[in-house]
């Protein structure tokens, strides 16, 4: 019977001895060689599983160690000795793992599994987790987050004090209060700032910011109402918080998988942008729907939102952006779907 060359260490010193290793029919391991004083027999020895072609160190019950570098010979010897006995389940599992990770076909299968799981998690898992997070986050914590963001923008003088006439402001505030009451949204407040460009956005915690420039840009008050309704839709869905939760859930998963926060952060940097954009488009659609519903109830044409968005887009020249790259569905799409919605609803009943 062939033996496998090994290096024998007695477990007491770093001195090594050349030896040969083989198994008896009963599965006992025998170490023997000219440099050893006697033939050594061990029962119940566990052969470590194979990792690529790295040396295998067999740790023997008395603390001695047998190092085998010829992995193929060791595997062959074990297969031959097993004869008809079934292979222990543990060994079979590790042989399968070795087959997977020593061939490109196995690696491709693993890659397919990883891609599928990551995609499904992004698509369904993360939003579900985010809903849970959003539901359990106290309103005060969210408001604090929004307040910090707002303070930062003001400190950096990105946002400056509004120069709107008090009357104009009060009219819009009153309209916003009415909208809140009608739509049943509790935590929301409207603030005006000057930014240098027409814009409106919702912060976590329910603060909606509208810029002076947007108020001036609007050709009709109903357009401002439409934008406010859209932003209130973001507040109602707690979209900013939800988006943050979805993205950090993905980071957490990848950190758990790679076992290193900095490596995981680097890995999700690229996909994060794409994913954030795609989540964000979902949110825009939800806010558009919320706005259209409200506007119909309030007797305002939902096309007002599409109108002002389209003009804004023309003005700033972002219309040529492909939809999948932009966080907002193209204004033309939104105007169209708003009109379809208005068409559906406006049909006179019997």
């Amino acid at each position: 019977m062939n033996a496998v060359a090994c290096r024998y260490y007695d477990g007491k010193s770093s001195r090594r001895k050349a030896a040969a290793l083989t198994f008896t029919d009963a599965g006992d391991l025998i170490v023997d060689g000219a440099e050893l004083e006697e033939r050594l027999v061990y029962r119940d020895v566990r052969i470590p599983n194979r990792v690529a072609d790295t040396p295998r160190f067999i740790h023997l019950p008395d603390g001695a160690v047998c190092e085998v570098q010829d992995n193929d010979a060791l595997d062959e010897l074990r297969v031959r000795l097993r004869r008809d006995d079934p292979e222990p389940r543990r060994d079979r599992f590790w042989r399968l793992v070795h087959r997977l990770d020593s061939t490109w076909r196995g690696a491709a299968a693993a890659l397919a599994v990883v891609a599928t799981v990551m995609y499904s998690f992004t698509r369904w898992g993360a939003p579900a987790v985010a809903s849970l997070v959003v539901a359990t986050t106290p309103q005060e914590a969210e408001a604090l987050l929004g307040q910090n963001g707002l303070n930062l923008l003001r400190q950096l003088e990105v946002l400056e004090t509004s120069a709107l006439e008090p009357n104009r402001r009060n009219d819009l505030l009153a309209a916003f209060e009415e909208m809140k009451r009608e739509a049943g949204v509790e935590h929301a407040d409207l603030q005006f700032y000057s930014l240098g460009a027409p814009n409106a956005f919702a912060l976590p915690g329910g603060t909606v910011v509208v810029t002076d420039e947007l108020v001036e840009f609007a050709e009709h008050d109903e357009e401002i109402i439409a934008v406010l309704a859209h932003e209130l839709g973001h507040v109602e869905g707690r979209h900013v918080l939800r988006s943050m939760a979805q993205r950090s859930t993905l980071l957490a998963l990848w950190t758990a998988v790679t076992g290193d926060v900095s490596l995981a952060a680097l890995s999700v940097l690229g996909p994060d942008q794409l994913i954030a954009q795609s989540y964000s488009r979902d949110f825009e659609r939800a806010a558009d729907e919320f706005a259209a519903d409200y506007l119909l109830r309030a007797g305002v044409s939902p096309t007002r939102l599409g109108d002002i968005l389209e003009r804004l887009e023309r003005e700033s020249g972002t219309g040529s952006f492909p939809t999948w790259l932009s966080s907002h569905p193209a204004a033309a799409d939104r105007a169209r779907s708003a009109m379809e919605r208005a068409g559906d609803r406006d049909e006179p009943g019997p």
């Binding site: 932003e231 979209h239 804004l312």
Partner: peptide, 15 residues
Amino acid sequence: SMATGADPGTAAPDM
């Protein structure tokens, strides 16, 4: 932020 175009959305401008 001086030169930016408009984009009413969730995110604060230039954050």
